[in-house]
Design a protein around this nucleic acid. Sequence first.
DNA 1: CTTCCAGTACTGCCATACAAGCAGGTGTCG
DNA 2: CGACACCTGCTTGTATGGCAGTACTGGAAG
Lengths: 216, 216
Amino acid sequence: MLTLELPPGTALSENELATALQVSRTPVRESLILLAEEGLVQVFPQIGSFVSRVDPAQVADAQFLREAVELAALEDLPGELDAGVVARLRANLDEQAVADLDREAFFALDEAFHQGVLELSGHGRTWSTVLSAKGHLDRARRLGLSGTETQAQRIAEHGEVLSAVLDGDVERARAAMRVHLRAVFDDVERIQQRSPELFAGPSTAGPVRRNVVIWA
Amino acid sequence: MLTLELPPGTALSENELATALQVSRTPVRESLILLAEEGLVQVFPQIGSFVSRVDPAQVADAQFLREAVELAALEDLPGELDAGVVARLRANLDEQAVADLDREAFFALDEAFHQGVLELSGHGRTWSTVLSAKGHLDRARRLGLSGTETQAQRIAEHGEVLSAVLDGDVERARAAMRVHLRAVFDDVERIQQRSPELFAGPSTAGPVRRNVVIWA
DNA sequence: CTTCCAGTACTGCCATACAAGCAGGTGTCG
DNA sequence: CGACACCTGCTTGTATGGCAGTACTGGAAG
């Protein structure tokens, strides 16, 4: 597995990437297709490929989808929770409490926490779908270094969610989750105000034309 | 645009498809990658590619996601509805009422209706995400020729949803939508009982390995 | 100095050729 | 007759060459 991290707006050349990664253009191209499908890369035929700027509209879409799914999942919580998953969630919260957690580590824990909550209600597999739509949102979150104080706030919110879940209080859990997700969304908006150059203007998303489609 | 319809379980050969479609392997391969991403095709390196059988688990996932999104959207209905979209929805219902509607035509109208409802609440763009996750569910629906009587039933449910939406009664709209989506899901289960060979056993989904990943 | 035009160099796209690996049939040996 | 080993044919994965189209740059004309 090879990873490359590039700032939004960067021009990507299949040739450059191929030589840089020491592979041919074919696998590079196939990766770009997948990234374009997720909306992380924009491909303009005969012009070039670019790391797409964060699209506020897509961020809002992802936020809506995520909120809908995670709140709906909480309604499907079973009477008896899976002990293993619960233990993992507790351990996750403990790790989050560690003082000096770098952004990436916190991000990973955050992801695992939300996925775990989904698993509790038996909808863990849906997480991958949410993920693929969440690209823009996550990039926005990653870009802004949320200060330690807001990080502590998010951790507290996680705790509140889990607490309500363990109490079996669905309504409280939903309310807490809603508050939490909205707060994350507000973080993103703050980032946008501070670093507008990373975000795109209105409606830059171009449709992706595909010539050959095989339909099963 | 080229479409091909193949029954689940069919072995796909990139070469065969290429010759059949009169193109080279490259575009075929790129399409297969996208289909694999949606879970409609399974690719086993050095073995072959196959039209994946309908996975009941993924159908359930799609149902959950769809229900979550569409119900959540109804909560975001604005006070004043977009007149153009409303007109389109009315026209759509009228078309659905046509007596002898073949399955494919009804399917298209059904899709457009649900997308329209999402647009009313300003979340029309989310539909594409739902779509990409809905592949298994749609295939299942397509496979079974839902009799005209159930089709009439679905149309009536659509009418009820739109009626409640126009009345501004969010709760009634949500209830109607929930009933409708559950009914569709039940249709699928009936199909599975009648044609189990089109469905997969438990957990046939294989992970997709990707060698080169560029991360924006 | 400005403007227009043509040439060049780049892009992504498609077709083709090669490499690696698995499955199954077949021949041979015990 | 049975079991094992090889070998052929197929698969997907990767590399490469050539094609069509766009953007940029340099020079010439007004």
